[in-house]
Design a binder for these strands. Structure first.
Lengths: 330, 330
DNA sequence: GGGTCCAATGAAAGCGATTGCATGGATTCT
DNA sequence: AGAATCCATGCAATCGCTTTCATTGGACCC
């Protein structure tokens, strides 16, 4: 048996297809008894409206796209969940696309998504600005963790939290810090480095910049190696994954954390809590990030002309066990 | 400017819409010059076919659904990527849905997906069999990491690898083992426990069954606690996440791994490599799992009547650093 | 030269929903 | 009572594409 349509329901109920359609979309326009009959018949037949047909006439796909650079990076599942949860509440499922860290794939996917979705959320896009604008075309887009003047965006602003982190270490007696920079193409990496530099400038401390390193466990191990070559007693890693690599490297070399060095991550992904010692980090407001992104996208879909809004949500400093008093040098 | 359609292209090229459609779908049916003209005009106008219109007439959405119980569990991102990669190659994007560990949500989502997608891949579904069958209806479904007689499925069979793991520990001198069981509702957990039991029965060893524990880091800590209350020198954890919890708990209590106890995980997720010590585990064939699932689904979409095929792919024992010689009991 | 066949194209009928407009019966107003 | 109003419903067009069937104009064969 083929799927039920508004026509089969109409026939059964002895009404026209238009009435059936209205029973679902504008229930106030059909008489209560007829509506009841229709709904019950629909349930009986296990009717599901064809989204293709609806999409064709309304011009809306009822879908939003989500492009992430790397779903295996533990940052993204948390974001994906937050976005999906919000999108689901407003009845617009999410099409997830993994760009596998390729900028080229990213804009290719945006293009592909056009015509299938009503708008897309681009999480931490790697693509150059021009490519993004071009690929987007008239497709509503919102960026997460990156800004671009022409597009709405929501970013996590870690400035204040990183200051808190710095102060935390300062109070523990640290005076020499290493900044383990993330990938140079990453907008977030640039912002974080900047925030830390600014904090360091306002304090009487030494800041040794190392990197850039890849935002991966391996990258972290390399960063750990570099860290040991310096006299820094505390390190800011670009993100938690890198911080875990640092921890592993230090452990492998018999350097105690936080005994001999303190390490700070960023994002607060699952890993940060499971690693030993538990990672002092800056928690990203995943839920808010996701919710805001979806809300902004919806707004942009409904009012395509609106000026792109830029939102920044603060991260929160979360002390755990990977930071401790500075070992007195010597 | 509204989007280009086959009509606008047809007009520009001085041909009929039918020809334009054919130029894309049955290129061998239109003359080379006309096709070239059409394709160039299409590129010019940045034409994207409306998937709604196409879907309406062909009855195919050109989309497959993927339902995972918990995207934040590191097992799933790896699977998602593998599935997406394959689906992408055959030009069928993936709609990802996170059921947030709720069986009810799971079947609700399956229902919702019907009419939007051509088929669904259900990864490690929690729902009772009846609910799944019912929700599926005539929608092609394939299960990953769970079997059900009526549905095609692909599972990771860890039996052999777990035997290897057992032998590995046996050779290291272990004679008393703990089995840290996963959630009782999990099909995979049942299979793993069974495999280990069978192995133990074939050997002169003691097997202490503990649990069930939640398949989470916290669950693992609890399992670690329970483990310490026994005399077992080696433990099989349900999965890597749980194993990490065990490791953390042992570390917190000053018990050395692998010095005093050996721990084995399962799945080989990112965590297994980043934790200290690196986890000895059983690697799941994520890429094959994903590829097979998509291929089976496609086959089932194209031949709805076919008998459900059941595939099992072997995991591979992967020794790392969390296992070592049994401490001679004192 | 006339018939056959084929390749290239066009005309038109849907696919299943939404929606503006028309309609007709009941209700209310004057 | 007749006119005006309104509510519930039906009719029919439409969205953009695919696909069947018909048509045209050569090329080819006898």
């Amino acid at each position: 048996m083929s799927r039920a349509t508004i026509y089969s329901i109409a026939e059964i109920c002895g009404v026209s297809a238009a009435t059936v359609s209205r029973a679902f979309n504008r229930p106030e326009l059909v008489s209560p008894e007829v509506r009841a009959r229709i709904l019950s018949a629909a349930r009986e037949l296990d009717y599901q409206p064809s989204s293709a047909a609806r999409g064709l006439v309304t011009g809306r796909a009822g879908l939003i796209g989500l492009i992430v650079p790397d779903i295996t990076n533990p940052f993204f599942p948390l974001l994906v969940r937050a976005i999906q949860r919000t999108a689901d509440r407003i009845g617009s499922p999410v099409m997830l696309v993994d760009a596998e860290e390729s900028a080229a794939a990213e804009s290719r996917m945006v293009k592909q998504l056009r015509g299938r979705v009503d708008g897309v959320i681009l999480a931490s896009p790697r693509s150059p600005a021009a490519a993004l604008r071009e690929a987007g075309g008239d497709l509503p887009c919102v960026l997460v963790n990156r800004t671009l003047r022409e597009l709405p965006s929501v970013v996590c602003d870690n400035t204040a939290a990183l200051y808190d982190a710095g102060e935390h270490l300062y109070k523990l007696g640290h005076r020499s810090f290493a900044l383990l920079a993330g990938p140079s193409a990453s907008w977030a990496a640039a912002r974080r480095s900047q925030a830390i530099r600014r904090w360091a400038r306002g304090r009487e401390v030494e800041l040794i910049e190392l990197g850039p390193f890849r935002a991966s466990f391996k990258g972290g191990r390399r960063a750990g190696e570099a860290l040991l070559a310096t006299g820094a007693t505390a390190a800011f890693a670009f993100d938690d994954l890198m911080a875990c690599g640092v921890l592993a490297e230090l452990h492998a070399r018999g350097v105690a954390v936080p005994g001999e060095r303190s390490v700070i991550g960023c994002d607060d992904v699952l890993l940060a809590q499971t690693v030993t010692p538990a990672l002092t980090t800056v928690s990203a407001p995943f839920a808010d990030l996701g919710r805001t992104a979806v809300e902004m996208l919806i707004r942009h879909i409904e009012a395509p002309g609106a000026t792109p809004e830029q939102r920044r949500l603060p991260g929160a400093f979360t002390p755990r066990s990977s930071t401790g008093p500075a070992r007195t040098r010597g």
